[in-house]
Design a protein around this nucleic acid. Structure first.
Lengths: 242, 242
DNA sequence: CGCGCTGCTATACGGTTGTACAATAGCAGC
DNA sequence: GCTGCTATTGTACAACCGTATAGCAGCGCG
């Protein structure tokens, strides 16, 4: 009994690495358990650590979630951008690779979608999470604007307004990703890529009138119908639910 | 004291109307409290009813949620379709009115988005909710396919494959609706309508190659690049997170 | 080797959750 | 008007939640 294998009850770690470990444990929990994963006890168990530690390292649990949100979001964006930039080829090709990365199997994990749902559902409650969303959404849009800007400088591509174009493309990507994550049987990832490629094609063909640079606002967006008499003055409520 | 205003402690109701009232109370709770709204106590309080009643009328709380999901989803779809069909005009105009209804103020309520997040987050756990999603998504896609089919029969519009077109349009609508619900300041509803109108315009211009009727699958979707050598055999993981 | 800083654990607390079940009472039918 | 069916209530229960806090213990430093 002289040389007992007395394993230490816990190991100390620098605050930085412990915080990082907690963030990774949080992401693992959200991925595995979805909305039930953001519990100090569950995250602590995942990290092999006492529940009280997370409130010791983070002012509150929502701060931890917000940090995890920013970490994951930026990591994904960098991975996708890196994948798109890998081959040195035309902007059009880079955009296509961006789509491919967006619908790669790793991105279509249902656990990842559930993670995102948790982030989204916290936006309306927590100001920190909302700030992270605004930052990361801006970063995604900036990435798309960069790719689209390179595309615009390609010969034969008509000029278009970058910001609304990026908004539309981002929405298309998000919408396809959402449905693909919910029900993988609706369409194959390659179909999603093809639909995004179609969008690129239409953009290059100048088929999006409201994106023309001289189009100031959306009021003149439709172009042809200047007279919009707002026909039904008696506003029929679109949402009859109480 | 002879004529006491003795209010009955509760009122009996037929099972049907009580279930309906509980469904409406559920929707109100989800709208107000988001994910914290699906508690028997909160729903019961909203309906002015004891918590035990909901487990008495519904086998479980997830069944109630699934029913509420289907009710709200179909109600919204019918409202939007009704709004689109109101004027008897061109298919193109009906499609535009569909977009307008989609981004009407009532649909951009943050509470509605939070409600949807709850539904979405239950899909991976509950088979009933998943079935409701599959049904309602199919209904939405069918509605879009109907509108797009009418558009296709218009003179001057090239033929296109209905199903992937509806999938793409649905994704665009959903993606724009999501971001508009999260952050109303990113773009105005009219801009979203304009971007959808752009999509319609491109479709009518035949600017979506993969939607051409002869295009069989997504493998030939990109059209031009037949040789796709899958360049990087060492698959760099897109998601480096553990 | 031992001191001491502090990362970390363990527990307690008041609150919430879903489910179960016995008791109550509205109200319809006779 | 009384009776009986059953919708409804109220409570009990065990499990979980986030936070606060007192004290243990790893481990660097002297």
């Amino acid at each position: 009994m002289a040389k007992e294998q007395q394993t230490p009850k816990f190991r100390r770690a620098a605050a930085t690495v412990r915080r990082e470990a907690l963030i990774e444990a949080t992401l693992a929990c959200l991925r595995k358990y979805g909305h039930d994963g953001l519990s100090v006890r569950r995250i602590g168990a995942e990290a092999g650590v006492s529940p009280g530690l997370i409130t010791h390292h983070f002012p509150s649990v929502s701060t931890l979630i917000a940090t995890a949100y920013e970490t994951l979001s930026m990591s994904l964006l960098h991975s996708i951008e890196h994948h798109a930039r890998e081959v040195d080829s035309s902007p059009r090709e880079r955009l296509r690779r961006f789509y491919e990365a967006w619908f790669a199997p790793a991105l279509l994990d249902p656990g990842l979608f559930n993670t995102w749902l948790v982030f989204w559902s916290m936006i309306s409650h927590d100001a920190g999470v909302r700030a992270v969303h605004d930052r990361t959404y801006a970063a995604y849009r900036a990435a798309l604007e960069s790719l689209l800007g390179q595309l615009q400088r390609t010969g034969g591509v008509p000029a278009f307004r970058l910001r609304p174009a990026a908004i539309a493309l981002s929405a298309l990507l998000d919408g396809l990703w959402t449905e693909a994550s919910i029900n993988p049987r609706t369409f194959k990832p390659a179909e999603a890529v093809a639909l995004c490629e179609d969008w690129t094609h239409a953009l290059c063909a100048g088929a999006f009138p409201s994106l023309h640079p001289d189009t100031g606002g959306p009021s003149r967006a439709s172009g042809r119908r200047q007279r919009r008499p707002r026909p039904q003055n008696r506003r029929r409520p679109v949402l009859p639910i109480a």
